[in-house]
Design a protein around this nucleic acid. Structure first.
Lengths: 207, 207
DNA sequence: TTGATAAACGGAACGATGTTCCGTATAAAA
DNA sequence: TTTTATACGGAACATCGTTCCGTTTATCAA
């Protein structure tokens, strides 16, 4: 199928469209930039200057723009990365706790994620087309993760079965939204805790 | 009480803390800037450059910054101005229509206001302390306005009586929020229309 | 191992923006 | 009219996102 290459046996290394491998320093820098951006965004918010990120990663701004042609690309990359981390946490938690407890713990993990991303949420709904794809990515990654936990907890009789994963994700996100002025990040935790208790309560009638 | 002034008899003109009147050109320019900002924000969003506003008002940027020391001050001023306009519309509408119809018409007016201010809503929840006072102002102006309309409509038997003005304001604002991707500004109108019909339906059981 | 070369790098430079500064113009008071 | 506090205008500054290009370097072929 490929007209010009069957060179390296193990296709483990990322290759360019032509032939050559992706240079090692490029990979290193890309990773360093992503991690620096994560740290800087967490510390100073999404409005932090790109130069600060480049400095923290130990590269020039030219390099930063080679890997992330626009500022929003960096934001999007960080967001997707953290969505992935949150989704992946589901299976790790499921392996360690029994179903009901796993569900509760993952939901608190999800609350932390939402709370940390409050600054981004504002950017998303600001109409910038650069962020259009994010809500879909968000849903496609997190819904299956939560659904798996829900199914397991339901089958174990720990929670009721008439809850939709998508609705639950949105409901929690809204509980974390700062609409009610007053009540800090603890309030969100308490409200979500109540929600989880509500799920458990419903399971009692099933036995 | 005032150790140095009892000069002008009719205190109709705005005065400075010392003695002198506020200059006429200053008043003119302040008003022109506010109107220009309203127009520019509506046309190009809240991220429009201040120079564009100064140009439209026919003044220099120095003058703009004399009246509104920070960019956010201009945004806040426009917002408060439009909150006032929306609140004042209540009495005007109430004078022209019967209570139930007045309520319905004002709520659509409120929807237009919320929809137009979507760009600002993002800025408010971005944590900038310059906007901290706005939600309170919003509530203190609009709640009484809606409450008056609600009371009149309730007394006329047009709507049910168990609705809270504050909750209604927030509910409508959320109906207008672009969370569900898909569904434009018409959807908000339809949903609020349903809400109003719901209010009317409840009144039937009262007679 | 050693050139050759495509890829990646760094950071000065550019354009746009929010904000400040200060010499000039002017409305209000004497 | 003269005086003076006030306001004006717009050049200048600091900072941002982004581009450009001469220089460095990792990879490949010999």
């Amino acid at each position: 199928m490929d007209d010009k290459s069957e060179e390296r046996g193990g296709g483990l290394e990322p290759v360019n469209s032509t032939d050559r491998r992706v240079r090692a320093d490029a990979q290193r820098n890309s990773k360093a930039l992503l991690e620096a951006a994560m740290a800087v965004f967490a510390a100073s918010g999404v409005d932090a200057p790109v130069r600060e990120i480049a400095d923290k990663a130990g590269v020039g701004v030219g390099t930063l723009y080679r890997h992330f042609p626009q500022r929003s690309d960096l934001i999007v990359a960080v967001f997707r990365n953290e969505v992935d981390a949150c989704a992946n946490a589901a299976s790790a938690i499921a392996a360690e706790y029994e179903p009901g407890e796993a569900l509760a713990r993952w939901m608190q993990r999800y609350v932390d994620f939402i709370a940390a991303k409050r600054g981004l949420a504002a950017a998303f709904s600001s109409g910038d087309p650069a962020y259009e794809s994010l809500p879909l990515y968000f849903l496609e990654k997190l819904r299956p993760a939560l659904q798996t936990l829900l199914d397991a907890a339901t089958e174990a009789g720990d929670v009721r079965s008439d809850v939709d994963a998508k609705e639950l994700l949105f409901a929690i996100a809204r509980l974390c939204s700062p609409d009610r002025y007053g009540g800090g990040p603890d309030q969100a935790r308490r409200m979500v805790g109540l929600l989880v208790d509500g799920l458990r309560y419903g399971a009692a009638s099933v036995g």
